[in-house]
Structures are given as C-alpha cells and as structure tokens.
Design a protein around this nucleic acid. Sequence first.
DNA 1: CTTACTGTATTAGGTGCCTAGTACACAGTG
DNA 2: CACTGTGTACTAGGCACCTAATACAGTAAG
Lengths: 131, 131
Amino acid sequence: MFTINPTDPAPIWRQIEEGIRRLIALGALTPGAAVPSVRDLARDLRVNPNTVARAYQRLTEGGVLIVKRGEGTYVADQPAQPRKAERNEALREAAMRYASSAIAIGAEIDAAVEELESAYDRVVRNHRRRA
Amino acid sequence: MFTINPTDPAPIWRQIEEGIRRLIALGALTPGAAVPSVRDLARDLRVNPNTVARAYQRLTEGGVLIVKRGEGTYVADQPAQPRKAERNEALREAAMRYASSAIAIGAEIDAAVEELESAYDRVVRNHRRRA
DNA sequence: CTTACTGTATTAGGTGCCTAGTACACAGTG
DNA sequence: CACTGTGTACTAGGCACCTAATACAGTAAG
C-alpha cells in the first residue's frame, strides 16, 4: 500500500493516517473498498497493531473509514474531506515547512519547484504501478 | 531571529539548527558574526538552554559555527555546506514529504506550487523586514 | 458450537525529547 | 582579586510515542 519512514519525525500513526488519505485521494481506495485488517497492515509495515489501530480509529472518527466490528474496516461511502479553510491552512503550513528546509539547505526556488514536481510524479506513478 | 513551532513533530533542537542555517543562507548571518548566547536565545524562544546548546553543538560539529569558550559563538569564516549529493537527497526527501501531504489533502500540483512560491516569498520578506 | 478472523482495550516497559536545577571551566571587566 | 557572562556537563522528572503481551467482544464459516 505505502511505506513508513522511521526517520521521519512524524509519528507512525500519523504517517499511516496520511497514507490512507493519500490512497483515497489518488483513487487507489474507492468508497466501500475494504481496508487491510489492523493485524495485516501491521505485519506489512512491520509495526505494532496498536499503532495501526490508532490511525484507523482517528480516520473513523474523521468520517473517512467505516468500521464493521468483527467484520472489517471500509472506506466510507462519502469520505469526509477537511473544510476548504482547513485544507488551505494545512497546505500553507506544509509549504512553509518545505520552503524553510529548502532555504536552509541553500536551494533556489526553481530547484525546489522542480523537485516538487518530480515528487508528485513519483507518487502518482508509484500508485499506478502497484494498482 | 526566528520562531519555534511547538506543534511541529520535529524536535526543537532541530528547528533551531535549521533556523540558524536558514539565516546564514539568507545572508542575515554573515561569516564572523556573533550568534546569540545559549541563554539569550533560550529566553527569546522560551526554551530550555540545554535545547539551544544541543543545536549549537551540532552546528559546531558540522563546521557551521565556531565557539570561543567563555566568549561566545560565531558563524564560521567559511560555513560548511553539505555535499552536493547530500543536499540533493535532503531536498528530494523534503519535497517528497510535502508532495505526500499535499496529495493526501487533495491538492493539485498547481496549488502546491503556488503555495510553495508564497512560502518562499514570506520567508525572504520576513528576513528583510527584521534585518 | 467451534474455529478463525475482525476491531478494541488494558497493562507494562523502553526510548527520545524537553524541562529544571545545579555545577564547572574559561574569558573579559572593574 | 571579585564579578559577570560565556559554553559545557550532569542528574532527575515528566511526557509522547512505540512495542509487547494479553484479553475481550463481535461476525462469518465450517
């Protein structure tokens, strides 16, 4: 599905949460589709089941996933998207972090944009390849 | 000088380290310039002196700062820059994190680029204003 | 019913980060 | 000399995160 980066300062449960959201945004996970069981995904990612459960729980609270207890977890019929204002703010903060890092490294904006486009391509290609 | 984001999952000492590197890259801190004392910067950022000391120590080990014990800390005459290969890798990873987040949010690449350019502008302006 | 799979909850332990406090060695100044 | 301001080092405590192990509740299939 996706990978976990242990060196990333972001908590693993957040990486999983974002990974699921990304797959839905990319269309790799469609409404009603079954999501891997907590134990399966934990084994795949080599992570503790509790960590996966925490991510799933947050996604369920957020209206992205639907849990059928004893049966499994599924993508909601209409996966909830953050409000426009929240999306803009989240994007702005993410851009700010990237810009700060890039400038600290000594990268010009052109290089930063180019690398960003490459990254976008890579994520989309990676998705299509595994799909 | 710069600000600390307590909600950022990145450790504070790393934010400080990056902040100093950013100021040098922007020209706000020139070679030979004095850097705030550990206690002063700690008071400004409302952070424990140990945390600032840790960042300074890493920057000193990296050849970015020079410490004159009992006197103060200064920007090295020729601040060390990471190797080209390392810079590219760091930029690629940062771009990947940004792209992953942006896609998960549901942002198109155009919006991501636009927000990135805004962030770059903001960082540079903010520097010139305080300088 | 038994079995095997779901999600969920609880407890315990280890690690990294941050804070707080204290102490030491060095340099400059009155 | 004493005093102040440097960087540095150490200990102790609290917190978030991750892991590990175990147990419980619900669903489906044999």
